[in-house]
Design a binder for these strands. Structure first.
Lengths: 340, 340
DNA sequence: TAATAGAATGTAAAGCTTTACATTTAGCGC
DNA sequence: GCGCTAAATGTAAAGCTTTACATTCTATTA
């Protein structure tokens, strides 16, 4: 298409050197007022825009932040990206987005791509953080902030949710309400986040001196159908329970539907709580209880932390665990005498 | 961090010129086998990676595709981005993502940013396509594909859903089932997509010779609460209707909850259909009827089209309207005699 | 053996900016 | 009017690659 005008053409038209034009454009040095005016006029007339590639080459920075995400399904990650974008936008950075689909090999490829593209920093959202990831990160010439995983042990900066803490807190609320036989619908057994939540659940029981029954613990895949199935499995065991904690809203909704289909009254007979607060929580007529935490803030904080690291010479360890709120709604009530 | 090695250092070590190294690295010219081997060895030893910035400067292309999206809430857009990513990934392009938050001014800013960043093409997802957008696009030196809006009139290439068609089709299904008093819960009045769906609804009625009653048409904001409110408004009018078409799943779920709360039996008394098929459709015990269309495909097709445009010299108009499927599930049944 | 085609390799320009350093200009005090 | 300082401007290198064109081989054919 139409040929771009470059700095030397502007300089020629203005009868000055390119250095002076550069100084005017970037306001990076003393220029006589009359010269400045003249150059600005030419810039405007010609619509001159510097070639960012050349500039980046000279400056050795791209004002680009890379982001590696396993996938985008689920509303959480999108919100996080919005949060990231908000920060980058107001700091003149742009976002290079990639989906890794979770495999280690693919993640390695994406780290290399971002390195090649010379991004100035990387936000890395992974399902589970491995030793190999640490190696990848250490090889990079730019800072990396991990999102959604607690990488304290690895010494890698991160922003994450307090999975164990809020799972424990929510379970404790149920215990406070008199529940002692509580079932847990967990996530995939190899998911770090799901296991952290499960741990919180177990800790709450243990702290209260309640024995943890394996019969009350199941694992699913986060989906509604899976919640339904796992709930059914537990129901079949015919052991009495008065509350269910689900690792996320999908499983909670599945459980809710399953209970209702089996004529178990919620919340009169069984309370249901999802460790989540997505749009699904609002979908059922019976308002689902859950834990609220902001993915938007997650992204926001991660981007903030990254920019900070990018500005400092040394990438020192830093961490941020986000706050949460437990919302008890219609799906939870105090334990009443259980009618068998 | 550690200094990168550049092509001339590799050349020096190998005792050849940089041109030869470039030829080996890019496999872009004849090189004697022994020389090639030697250079490849040095490349491996030194871990040489070309400076992409310099390369892009020389090649005048960035292998970058920009994407402007109003926002990322809702699962649709994320899926679309995944689809885009899938195509770009396998074609060695990367994605520069920006959220415009919908304002025209912001969109203009983002177009400029992408132009500055010298992306090779742009995918533009907007809520409503205006004359100004066309101007912005025509000024750009790279092709643009619009996503989610039918821009046939403007002559701008696009990939979109057949809003009017599937809304009409779904409504016709209801009519075939004997429904004649059908309510419509629409989206925001300034949303092009929402209005296209409304038009399809109206066309179906008109084609069947059914008068369109304003009392049966409401507008909301896509959310569950809004669907609930609008449904209530219509219920209050005390006119008999036997089916409801909602502009999306959120409104449909809201309507469903509202009807049930008012002791209206679904589907026995009123059928409910959402012009959507998100995760929400699976959340209720009563399986919601709807229209299925794939956002992932939307992104996929948009990216494909863009790449094609990028490869051809002239950017000729092209369009793609995606297929859809109407799924009648539990929430819809044939009209039976209406008990008053 | 010389000519010649074709392969292999090298040279240098083009792509465009930033910036350290060099040079020139202007202004001020004496 | 001279000298000095500070401001204004210019020069050229550095950042690194690709590639058109030039040159130098190598091998084949006459």
């Amino acid at each position: 298409m139409r040929k771009d005008i470059n700095i030397s053409e502007v300089a020629k038209k203005a009868g000055v050197s390119i250095a002076t034009v550069s100084r005017v454009f970037n306001n990076s040095g003393p220029v006589k007022e009359s010269t400045r005016k003249a150059i600005q006029k030419i810039i405007e007339e010609t619509g001159y825009l510097p070639n960012v590639l050349a500039r980046e080459l000279a400056e050795k920075r791209t004002n680009l932040v890379g982001m590696i995400v396993h996938n985008l399904s689920g509303e959480g990650m999108s919100r996080a990206i919005e949060g990231v974008n908000r920060v980058l936008d107001s700091n003149s950075y742009s976002l290079l987005m990639t989906c890794s689909n979770g495999s280690l090999e693919s993640e390695r490829k994406h780290f290399e791509l971002l390195r090649l593209k010379r991004v100035d920093g990387i936000i890395f959202a992974t399902r589970s953080f491995k030793e190999e990831h640490k190696d990848m990160i250490e090889k990079l010439p730019v800072p990396v902030v991990v999102m959604l995983q607690n990488t304290e042990n690895a010494g890698v900066p991160f922003v994450a949710f307090a999975n164990t803490a809020f799972a424990k807190g929510a379970t404790q609320k149920l215990i406070e309400l008199g529940h002692r036989e509580v079932a847990f619908l967990g996530g995939p057994e190899d998911s770090v986040n799901a296991n952290e939540r499960k741990r919180g659940f177990i800790e709450a029981l243990e702290d209260a001196g309640i024995a943890v029954e394996e019969d009350f613990i199941c694992h699913g895949n986060y989906h509604i159908e899976s919640g339904y199935e796992q709930m059914k499995t537990i129901l079949k065991r015919k052991k009495i329970f008065t509350a269910v904690v689900a690792v996320n809203d999908g499983m909670a909704i599945g459980a809710l539907n399953c209970l209702q289909d089996h004529d178990v009254k919620v919340p009169e007979e069984v309370s249901v709580l999802g460790l989540d607060d997505t749009v699904l929580a609002k979908a059922s007529r019976l308002k689902l209880s859950g834990v609220h935490y902001s993915y938007n803030d997650l992204g926001f904080e991660a981007a903030q932390m990254l920019l900070k690291q990018m500005q400092s010479e040394v990438y020192d360890f830093e961490k941020k665990v986000l706050p949460y709120e437990i919302h008890l709604r219609e799906s939870v009530q105090a334990r009443t005498h259980y009618k068998n």
